[in-house]
Design a protein around this nucleic acid. Structure first.
Length: 901
RNA sequence: AGGCACGUACGUCAAUGGUAGACGGCUUCCCUUACAAGGAAGAGGUUGGGGGUUCGAAUCCCUCCGUGCCUACCA
């Protein structure tokens, strides 16, 4: 037998993926059933610059489990993959490369730079998709997409033009989040707020006309440098302190500019001095306040976060922080700096480069969200779509975010991305068109310049579920696979991505892009910290694959599902051991496979089968049924648990041991062949059940089983090459669940366990043979234990030399260890010389006490009239039955203690 | 500042209002011809504290303590 004792995952992992891919197992066309149900998933496209991290591995595992499961159920499955062009990340990555050559992108110019990015993409982009192959992800590579493919770009332009024509996209001046480092505008979602220890400066502004000793208003600010652009001071209209000053004029220090005092509800009288300086050009709140009061906007900070000429000759050209120091200094000189206090506030930073955002007024493209948001909310309230799993809290979070949505800033001042399809004529007209040609025709001139900006990366991502399927053409893929079945994603992009896909899907297809949204948990490091590149605390999935194998890692990830969890390598190790267990169980079967075939004699009349055979069939069907149900509910954890315990406990610990004698019989016989075939068949079914979770080991073993071939494939794949991937997933049939067999088997398992317990507690060496005596008042139990096959099995598994029935405990030697079984049977193991009577009495006494405590609890429950009146009759009966059983055992134990005296 | 989650064995996590479990770790015994990455047995919990609802609470409600996450224009 040339099967190694230990499973080597890497060897199996190398062997199967490329074969599956070459044989077309991943493409939906392999399914030849024209009526096959459709199942489709689009992958959240990872950044083309990215490499695989645990979050991806988690998502991919779950998507692959679902895809493989549905495929085996005969569905026409499409799992579509691809990557995102990731505007800023990619541009930065290539810019960094250029820097090493002493160049900037401006040295190259736009066209050359973009060429260079494409070159980078072809040479080293998409590393992550190659890593996906290692994961075993059954994605359809023939439909792989990139957000800047011609087809997807066409969809982007089409959507932009249509939204523009409907007035949903507009160009305008607004205050935006500007990153002075990346030199681009950012959407609200790309800005992160971090707490910061700073200072609050109290500045005094004198009233006009009051010379020298006149009144002043004190304002508090964290950004003194912006005072140079102040165009008002605002107070709350209800604030008594300032009521008479509303409408008064102040002289703005350092500039001499006259500014009004205005009243606005926005001002909180309780904060600071109750008077707010208003800088409409450099603060989003002030901007809105400025709009309400028609205040001028004075730009004093430029796109590089330096002071402009408007800031005055003393400040012009200074960095914003230098300007801050200088302003404070000047105020101090003028005696207008009231005080400076320490103050913690949150500051907005660029999510990528962590530079402090500078709010600036600039001309950008925006998308109105009212209509789009309305349809998404309607879909949620009317049709309950998409269905979030888990629904708490995501459904609510999603709905609330939509309700408070503001216009989406679409333009980005980058080169890498979808250039905005808008052209300008010399006389200032704006032409939005699908192509430059179309724009020329519309403009009536060839002298056009295209808007230099590109679209937010998430604009193309928002179209992903339909642009990847060929939209705006009415392709058959689009008709077949849209809407997709489920979206599996991390929670941090519910707003950035999920909501926008819903809005765009509703707008352009009129249907939700996906039925379900499964939100995965987050994997933290062992200290509960989020894994991140900058912290360097990430665990590399590929290293885990190398160490424990892909299948073991997948089981760990599948168990995580939607739970937030701290990464725990023990768990992977445990599943690695499980993989090895599977390997060795199969190894045992294969070592004893001569004369046997998968499926042979399995359809025969089961009434004549041995108890353990009927039992394992029942357990198998119960497990299959349960796994199917769990997967339908996205309860991956439960599915894994069921499979683990079915395989290890039921199949390995009990079934193989029970059938071992038959299977390993020295002489060939029809009985031996039957036993072997049954074992092989059960194993083969178990491998199928495990396959979606553990694709590699199951395929590796399945291929070695005698009797596997095309005939085992699901009908829909009958013409394919034999592979476990395309066999039918065992559904589990309720009719094959045999309650009686399970009850009987459980009684035997209990007997064996009790005897083993005695051996262990009394330190009886495994090598020492024992004798077992059983007293059973219950005829059914007695018959069961002493049925032909059972006797040998019980003896074998307890290492008992003799196993016999006695009429009463009185016939048992006094020096026996005893135990009570469920159902009232009693078991005794004569152990002359090994029994310390006092100790044994104590052991039994302890057990009796335990049972008595439980009985007391149950009795109290039954004694409570409220319980029997109000609890369901079924529960009451359950308690009564349990109490009866316990009482019986307590009595038996008492007698046993007596016998030892 | 608001909002929302979470707190269960030493660790990581389970448990439709009805006997609190799994895996790892730990203890004892066993290299029994599928597997020592294994087998057998075992210890370990007033479910963060306190109150309430209920015949019955880890689960529902209130409150306190602790921990995360999200949202927000308090200068």
């Amino acid at each position: 037998m040339d099967i190694p004792k230990t499973y080597d995952p890497q060897e199996a992992e190398q062997r199967h993926y490329s074969r599956w891919e070459e044989q077309g197992c991943f493409v939906p066309e392999t399914n030849r059933d024209p009526d096959a149900p459709i199942y489709s998933i689009v992958i959240p496209p990872p950044n083309v610059t990215g490499s695989l991290h645990m979050g991806h591995a988690l998502q991919h595992t779950l998507m692959d489990v679902l895809s493989r499961h549905k495929r085996m159920c005969g569905h026409r499955v499409l799992w579509l993959t691809g990557t995102d062009h990731a505007g800023i990340s990619t541009q930065l990555m290539v810019s960094r490369e250029l820097k090493k050559e002493g160049l900037t992108r401006h040295d190259l110019g736009r066209a050359k730079f973009i060429e260079r990015v494409w070159q980078w993409k072809h040479e080293s982009g998409g590393q992550i998709t190659r890593q996906m192959r290692r994961e075993g992800a059954s994605v359809d590579w023939s439909r792989e997409r990139f957000t800047m493919d011609e087809g997807l770009s066409r969809a982007v332009r089409e959507v932009f033009v249509r939204l523009y024509e409907e007035g949903l996209i507009y160009r305008g001046d607004r205050i935006v989040n500007w990153c002075p480092n990346d030199q681009t505008v950012l959407s609200d979602l790309e800005v992160e707020k971090t707490p910061q220890a700073g200072k609050l400066y109290y500045l005094q502004y004198p009233l006009k006309g009051s010379n020298g000793e006149g009144r002043r208003i004190t304002v508090a600010t964290t950004r003194p440098e912006t005072m140079l652009g102040d165009t008002a001071v605002a107070v709350n209209p209800e604030d008594e302190r300032y009521r008479e000053l509303v409408g008064a004029t102040l002289v703005l220090p350092l500039t001499g500019r006259e500014i009004p005092v205005v009243a606005d509800e926005f001002v909180d009288p309780a904060f600071g001095t109750g008077a707010v300086k208003v800088t409409p050009a450099h603060d989003p709140a002030d901007y809105e306040l400025g709009q309400r009061h028609s205040l001028p906007q004075i730009v004093v900070i430029d796109q590089f976060a330096r002071m402009t000429e408007e800031a005055g000759p003393d400040f012009f050209g200074l960095d914003r922080y230098k300007a801050r120091e200088l302003v404070v200094e000047r105020f101090e000189e003028l005696g207008l700096l009231e005080k400076v206090v320490d103050y913690e506030f949150s500051i907005s930073k660029c999510e990528r480069c962590k530079t402090v955002i500078e709010p600036l007024i600039s001309t950008q493209w925006f998308c109105r969200m009212d209509e789009l948001r309305g349809r998404a909310l309607q879909l949620l309230s009317d049709e309950k779509l998409p269905r979030f799993v888990p629904d708490v809290p995501y459904k609510r979070v999603y709905a609330e975010w939509l309700e408070n949505l503001r216009d989406w800033t679409l333009s980005r001042q980058l080169w890498w991305g979808h250039q905005i399809p808008a052209w300008y004529t010399k006389d200032g007209r704006v032409i939005v068109a699908r192509s430059e040609e179309e724009a020329r025709v519309a403009a009536g001139t060839d002298e056009l310049t295209q808007d230099p900006d590109v679209l937010d990366t998430w604009f193309s991502s928002a179209l992903w579920p339909f642009s990847t399927l060929g939209w705006p053409d009415e392709t058959s893929d689009l008709k077949t696979f849209y809407p997709t079945s489920v979206l599996v994603t991390a929670r941090d992009i519910i707003f950035l991505w999920v909501s926008r896909m819903v809005m765009m899907g509703m707008k352009f297809i009129g249907e939700t892009p996906f039925g379900d949204v499964f939100v995965t948990g987050t994997i933290f490091d062992k200290h509960g910290q989020r894994m991140s590149k900058t912290k360097g605390n990430g665990v590399d999935p590929l290293e885990v694959f190398d160490k424990y194998g892909v299948d073991a890692t997948r089981l760990t990830l599948a168990s995580i599902g939607s739970t937030d969890t701290r990464w725990n390598e023990n768990q992977v190790e445990s599943f690695r051991n499980f993989a090895n267990k599977i390997w060795n169980a199969a190894r045992f079967c294969l070592m004893n496979a001569e004369g046997a075939k998968v499926g042979e004699g399995f359809d025969a009349d089961r009434a004549g089968w041995a108890l353990h055979d009927r039992w394992i069939v029942s357990r198998l069907n119960r497990a299959a049924e349960s796994v199917g149900r769990s997967l339908a509910e996205y309860d991956f954890y439960a599915a894994v648990q069921t499979l683990y315990h079915f395989f290890w406990d039921d199949l390995c610990d009990w079934y193989i041991e029970l059938t071992k004698a038959d299977v390993t019989a020295v002489e060939a016989s029809p009985e031996r062949d039957r036993a072997r075939s049954r074992l092989l068949t059960v194993l083969e079914q178990a491998l199928r059940l495990l396959h979606p979770f553990m694709p590699y080991i199951t395929e590796e073993l399945w291929q070695r089983l005698p009797g596997v071939g095309r005939e085992l494939l699901h009908e829909a794949y009958r013409e394919a090459e034999p592979t476990i991937m395309l066999t039918a997933y065992p559904e589990g049939s309720i009719e094959l669940i045999d309650e009686r067999a399970e009850w009987e088997m459980q009684a035997i398992i209990d007997l064996i366990s009790r005897v083993r317990n005695i051996r262990s507690e009394l330190n009886v060496k495994p090598s020492q043979p024992i004798e077992i005596m059983v007293v059973s008042a219950d005829e059914r139990l007695g018959a069961l234990f002493f049925a032909g096959a059972s006797v040998d099995q019980i003896r074998r598994l307890t290492r008992a030399e003799k196993f016999r029935r006695v009429d009463s405990l009185a016939q048992v030697p006094r020096a026996s260890a005893r135990a009570v079984l469920a159902g009232g049977a009693e078991v005794a193991v004569p152990l002359e010389g090994l029994i310390d009577f006092a100790q044994e009495r104590e052991r039994l006494g302890r057990e009796r006490e335990k049972l008595q405590r439980e009985a007391a609890k149950l009795e109290a429950q039954l004694a409570n009239p409220q319980f029997s009146e109000r609890a369901p009759a079924e529960k009451v009966k359950e308690v009564r039955d349990r109490l009866n059983d316990i009482a019986q055992r307590v009595t038996a134990l008492a007698q046993m203690v007596e016998a030892l005296k």
